[in-house]
Structures are given as structure tokens and as C-alpha cells.
């Protein structure tokens, strides 16, 4: 039985190791080959940073990057507001009419194929433009679309954080004379800060990365980075894209990943922090 147990553990370790290789090998290969001098992307010649230099002079990419960052900041902030409210509603208002519809609407974009959201939002915008003369297809339509799909992610993060906050803490504040508005701004919101930080970063990177929905709702003047990358990689491998990808991976992946590491860890294990808080040294001088 012991032997079987260790064999089982060995198998699990092996699977985990292989999965990690599977997850990280492509990313590493991109980073490594971005420093390859050869135009033939996968055949190593020698170390060079020339593709990074080329990147710095590519006006099209620089312009698209600027638009992408603008869209990402706006939509992350927008989805932070809508997502925080939605997460708060879903976790604190247990009963209201249409609750099932509401939670369905908030959460469905998590799994809804992007292509459906893309075409439906575009047709809405076109229809609205016909009727109201608004909105023009540019950064604002992209931001609205991005808020709509990334709100769900913020809501999930906020909801799981709220699940770890004892409701009686909010009740206690109310009992001590705080109006519901004060309870939210003085108690709930400060306790949610870690979730808000990681929610914003998540929405930011989702927006920066989105291709399909953006392709539908963007206008001629609002080409984002993924659109540029996609149009280039459809034509095959491109060493400059490797360099760009490395920059994106390092900038978005590492910076936001590290910034969110602690908070995401806490958010994912909300119960544990509370339990530890509750059970530390119970020696009392009473």
C-alpha cells in the first residue's frame, strides 16, 4: 500500500512537472528566440537585440500600443466600478427579484465565446448609431465592449474576497451608527483593496490582450496592438513580433503578475487568512 502511495505521488509530480513545461515552454521559446539575429525565427544564429531596436522604430506598433494602453486603463477602471458593484450585489444581496438573471448576465461573459460578444456588440453599436447618432466606432466602443466582458472577472475576484469578510463586521459598523453608505466606504471598501488591485490588473491585462471583440467593435482609427500583431502573424513568423511579445510578456505578465501575486494568493485562499487570524495564540492575561 505504501509503495502504491508513493507510486501515485510520483505520477502526480510527473504530471505536474510536464504540465508546467507544457505551460511555460512556448513562452520561454518566444523570449529566447526574440534575441536571435536570424530572420529565420526558429533557427538560432547568434545573440542580438536588433529586433528590439526595429520595434522602437516601428511607428505602427508604437501607435497601436498607445491606443491599447489607453483602452486598457479606461476599461480596467470602468470594469472596476461595475465589477465591484456587481460583486458586492451578488455576495451581499442574497434575495432580490431577477437575481438569477442578474448573476447570469454578469457571469456569462466569463465563458461566452468572444466571437458572439463581438458581433452582437457591433450590431448594437451600429443600430444605436442609426437611431441616436452615437456611438462612433473608436476607442469608446472598444472600452464599452471591454468593460462588458472583463466586469465578470472583477466581480468574481471581489465576490471571493467578500466571502472571506465576516458579514457581522459590516453589521457591527451599522450597529455603531454607520449608515449603509458609511459602512461601504469605511469598512467594506478598505477591506476589499487587495481584491480591487488584482481585479483592476486582471481587467487591464484582459483588455490589453483582447483581439476578437476588438476586431468587431474598433473603427478605422483605433487599431489596437493585438490587431496589429494578428495581422502580422497571420502571414507567418516574424522576429519583430517575438521581440514585441517578449516586451508584452515581461511588462504585463511579470509586472502585474508579481504585483498581484500576494493579493491573488490571498483572494484565492480567503478562508485561510481568517482562520489563522482567529486561532493565533489564545493566551489571555484575563
Amino acid at each position: 500500500m505504501i509503495a502504491a502511495l508513493t507510486r501515485g505521488r510520483l505520477f502526480l509530480r510527473l504530471m505536474m512537472g510536464l504540465a508546467m513545461v507544457f505551460l511555460y515552454a512556448p513562452i520561454l521559446s518566444i523570449i529566447i528566440y526574440s534575441f536571435n539575429e536570424s530572420q529565420l525565427v526558429t533557427v538560432w544564429s547568434r545573440f542580438s537585440t536588433k529586433w528590439y531596436v526595429a520595434l522602437l522604430h516601428d511607428e505602427q506598433i508604437l501607435h497601436a500600443a498607445k491606443i491599447s494602453i489607453e483602452v486598457a486603463v479606461l476599461s480596467a477602471s470602468g470594469s472596476l466600478v461595475v465589477g465591484t458593484l456587481s460583486g458586492y450585489i451578488l455576495s451581499r444581496f442574497k434575495r432580490f427579484r431577477l437575481r438569477a438573471l442578474f448573476s447570469g448576465m454578469v457571469m456569462a461573459p466569463l465563458v461566452m465565446p468572444e466571437i458572439i460578444m463581438g458581433i452582437s456588440l457591433l450590431l448594437l453599436f451600429v443600430g444605436m448609431e442609426q437611431v441616436f447618432g452615437w456611438p462612433q466606432r473608436d476607442v469608446q466602443t472598444i472600452v464599452i465592449a471591454h468593460i462588458t466582458f472583463s466586469t465578470a472577472f472583477v466581480a468574481v475576484v471581489v465576490q471571493s474576497r467578500l466571502a472571506g469578510i465576516d458579514v457581522s463586521v459590516e453589521e457591527a459598523a451599522m450597529d455603531l451608527g454607520a449608515s449603509p453608505g458609511e459602512v461601504f466606504f469605511l469598512i467594506t471598501l478598505p477591506l476589499m483593496v487587495p481584491a480591487l488591485v488584482s481585479g483592476w490588473l486582471l481587467a487591464f491585462s484582459l483588455s490589453l490582450d483582447d483581439l476578437v471583440i476588438t476586431a468587431f467593435v474598433s473603427g478605422p482609427g483605433s487599431t489596437t496592438l493585438p490587431l496589429v500583431i494578428f495581422s502580422k502573424v497571420r502571414l507567418g513568423l516574424n522576429p519583430e513580433i517575438n521581440a514585441l511579445a517578449t516586451v508584452v510578456i515581461l511588462a504585463v505578465g511579470l509586472v502585474s503578475g508579481i504585483a498581484a501575486f500576494k493579493t491573488a494568493f490571498k483572494v484565492l485562499t480567503p478562508g485561510k487568512a481568517i482562520a489563522q487570524e482567529g486561532q493565533d495564540k489564545c493566551v489571555s492575561p484575563a
Binding site: 512556448p26 518566444i30 483581439l211 500583431i229 511579445a245 510578456i249 504585463v252 505578465g253 503578475g257
Partner: peptide
């Protein structure tokens, strides 16, 4: 990996 670009990961 989920935090890094989907498009780039597929491209890789």
C-alpha cells in the same frame, strides 16, 4: 500564463 497574452501564447 493566463495573465500573458493569449494571442502571443498561441503564436508561440
Amino acid at each position: 500564463p493566463f495573465w500573458t497574452s493569449f494571442l502571443i501564447r498561441v503564436y508561440a
